[in-house]
Amino acid sequence: MTPIGPATIPRFARGMRLREDQARSRWVVVGPERLFVPDEIALEILRLMDGTRSVDAIVDDLASRFDAPREAIANDVLALLRDLATKGVVTS
């Protein structure tokens, strides 16, 4: 597997779905026997992951909306997506 980089177009691995968990007022990623609860920032990132945007494009979008240096955002996004890739949630 190639590691996730700025040009990668990340998407959810097969069988992983982001959905609202109304009973608990939160969003979750559901898969078989697994459940991930993203924090606010992770949720912003996952919502932008639509199978067409590259990592770079996701970072651009976040940088235009949040008051943080682009480089710091890029590091956070890459770290999160790489972590989720090793857990089988995200693929490229």
Binding site: D21, A23, V28, V30, P32, E33, L35
Partner: peptide, 13 residues
Amino acid sequence: RVFREAAALGVLQ
């Protein structure tokens, strides 16, 4: 019916 009740109760999987 059981599935709908389960979803309303908070079941996800």
